[in-house]
Design a protein around this nucleic acid. Structure first.
Length: 561
RNA sequence: AGGGGUGUCGCCAAGUGGUAAGGCACAAGAUUUUGAUUCUUGCAUUCGUAGGUUCAAAUCCUGCCACCCCUGCCA
């Protein structure tokens, strides 16, 4: 373990203060956390909070983090999901110190602990049906009734439990229950089920077992078995903590037990989260797959162009939290996406909605000039672009009836072409239907970017491409999958809204655009800023004759808003 | 016979008896060959509420009020 000077660590939440105190007092010798996904769906943005807390907390104290597949329910789990987590985690930049499949690693141990607990009189085999258990649990204000099987002798319980394991009982006919207190005010403590009979093919163990431990029983013991010292989970488990501790005390019975601590779950306005709904969107082909760029899955936002750093910075900004769930506006996430992309994205000129411009007084060959790949980072260098007789500018960068403070091109007005010259618009040529066909402009030869001797002051700078230095690309512009006004889509759906009601109609629009030739060098997942427009990244659907770019996020725009 | 948790700016969030950090959002200004970035400034006389203790209270005490979570053989 790395040497860490505890006095130099600045605790950022209650847990970290507790860790420092535990380490100093010797109550714990190291920090071991675990990242315990159940392989039952793809990870989404909100999961990043949990994994960041697990990994960063351990890292801060020179500890370790284990990736443990929490696969105790064969009905829901699939290998595909488990594999996706390995990739997602690598993308996030986290390396688990160990990879564990709880089923393979711990089912035997957990089983043995259950037997010991039976012998200790702490667990019993119960033959009440699920309905009967539910009916005898009591209510929030009334105590439950004790099971008639509660006082079976330990020896008999052990025999029965082994019969459960050996397949003597049908699914649902028998459970192993913890003997705690049917009158406990915490419902979790009313003789919870530890094992159920379940014949289903486990994605790793096949049909090896016909009984499976419940989360509440398995989780604390798995933590203890692998030496986890801090078991961090979301607030919904807070009331399971007494049970967690009960199983540690009565099942584990050894020193240095793990501690469960809880943080707020994170949700983001306007984002659909919830495995069930995500799965439905995929199955119903509302999206192209788990990695649809409009999807909040990690594979989705990654394809959209979000970076791992942005996601991690975002969840760190939200903090630990002390309520069940914290909801932040989408703009909070977007801020971090832009912030990171601004540092790393390569600048390029792309005209999304072209308007042809003929430079009447320019007659030579195309002229090269350089564009800085990233004005925020000199090390990213420059690339060549060209200016020529025929160029294209953005339609919205020319106006016949300019609104106030319009800095772009107008009839008779001037504008700077980024990296090249100042031009003046002298004439507008129309089509028969009255729309603009093209513009005739003159350029000011003395205004060349970098050594402008013209003395002309120009308020606006616009981007452009030269006809001889551009090629057509495909752009996928995205809007949120869910209508803006639906802050909590999962809740809306659970309250009966139809998917059509909350779905943004045109969340994907494909357009053609003209990009400077430099973009031919792009590779899948490369990130660009199309100057003055937004951030884009190359999509995996691209081919040699069809470059496709996903719009990650627009630039902020304080003029058009 | 209920139990657990939470109330500090529109949203997150510090604060643990000494006179309300910070971020997002928003607004205004400066710089800018991206109306971006960057920078500067503004943004809670007040901490759910009513009392009390104290020289001093978001912090301590008492009473109210509001919201969230818990009755899977899911995790």
């Amino acid at each position: 373990m790395e040497k860490i000077d505890l006095d130099k660590i600045i605790p950022e939440n209650d847990l970290e203060e507790e860790i420092i105190s535990d380490l100093k007092s010797g109550k714990n010798k190291e920090v071991i956390t675990r990242c315990p996904p159940e392989p039952s769906g793809y990870w989404h943005i909100a999961h990043v909070k949990a994994w960041t807390i697990d990994f960063e907390t351990a890292k801060k104290f020179g500890g370790k983090t284990y990736l443990r597949m929490d696969d105790t329910n064969p009905l829901k789990e699939e290998g595909e999901f488990a594999e996706s987590y390995l990739e997602d985690l690598a993308w996030l930049g986290y390396k688990p110190d160990k990879l564990i499949y709880a089923s393979e690693a711990y089912f035997e141990d957990i089983y043995k602990i259950a037997e010991q607990m039976i012998l200790d009189g702490k667990a019993y085999v119960c033959f009440l049906s699920a309905e009967e258990v539910s009916a005898t649990r009591g209510t929030l204000t009334e105590p439950g009734k004790e099971s008639p099987y509660r006082n079976t002798s330990p020896e008999e319980n052990l025999r029965l439990f082994r019969e459960m394991r050996d397949g003597k009982f049908e699914d649902g006919k028998a459970t192993l229950r913890a003997k705690i207190d049917m009158a406990h005010p915490n419902m979790n403590m009313r003789d919870p089920v530890m094992y159920r009979v379940l014949r289903a093919k486990h994605y790793r163990l096949g049909n090896k077992w016909c009984i499976y431990p419940m989360y509440d029983f398995a989780h604390p013991l798995e933590d203890a078995l692998e030496g986890v010292t801090y078991s961090l989970c979301s607030m919904e488990f807070h009331e399971h903590r007494p049970l967690y501790e009960w199983f540690i005390e009565n099942g584990w019975k050894k020193p240095y037990p793990p501690k469960q601590r809880e943080f707020s779950r994170l949700t983001i306005e306007n984002v659909l989260i919830g495995k069930r709904y995500l799965k439905q969107f995929v199955n119903d082909k509302i999206v192209s797959g788990w990695d649809d760029p409009r999807f909040p899955t990690l594979v989705g936002v990654r394809r959209r162009g979000y970076t791992a750093k942005a996601l991690k910075d975002f969840v760190k900004s939200v903090g630990w939290g002390n309520v069940l769930e914290v909801t932040v506006p989408y703009s909070a996430l977007e801020y971090y996406v832009r912030a990171d992309l601004n540092q790393i994205a390569t600048r390029a000129m792309v005209v999304l909605d072209p308007l042809k411009v003929i430079i009447t007084n320019y007659n030579g060959e195309d002229e090269e000039f350089e564009i800085q790949n990233n004005p925020n980072d000199e090390n990213q260098g420059y690339h060549k672009s060209k200016f020529g007789k025929v160029i294209y500018i953005e339609k919205e960068d020319f106006s016949l009836n300019p609104p106030p403070k319009y800095n772009r091109l107008t009839l008779g007005g001037i504008v700077r072409l980024k990296g090249a010259y100042i031009i003046k618009c002298n004439n507008v040529l129309y089509n028969e239907d009255g729309s603009i066909n093209h513009l005739e402009c003159e350029y000011i030869p003395e205004s060349k970017s970098g050594n402008d001797t013209s003395g002309i002051k120009c308020k606006g700078t616009i981007h452009f491409v030269s006809e001889n230095n551009c090629f057509e690309i495909t752009i996928r512009e995205f809007k949120n999958l869910i209508k803006r006004e639906v802050a909590n889509p999962a809740k809306a759906l659970s309250e009966g809204a139809k998917i059509e009601d909350i779905l943004e109609p045109n969340s994907l629009v494909e357009i053609k655009a003209l990009a400077e030739n430099f973009l031919k060098k792009a590779k899948v997942e490369d990130k660009f800023q199309f100057i003055r427009k937004g951030y884009y990244c190359m999509d995996k659907d691209s081919t040699d004759d069809n470059y496709i770019f996903n719009s990650t996020i627009s630039l902020k725009d304080s003029f058009n808003k």
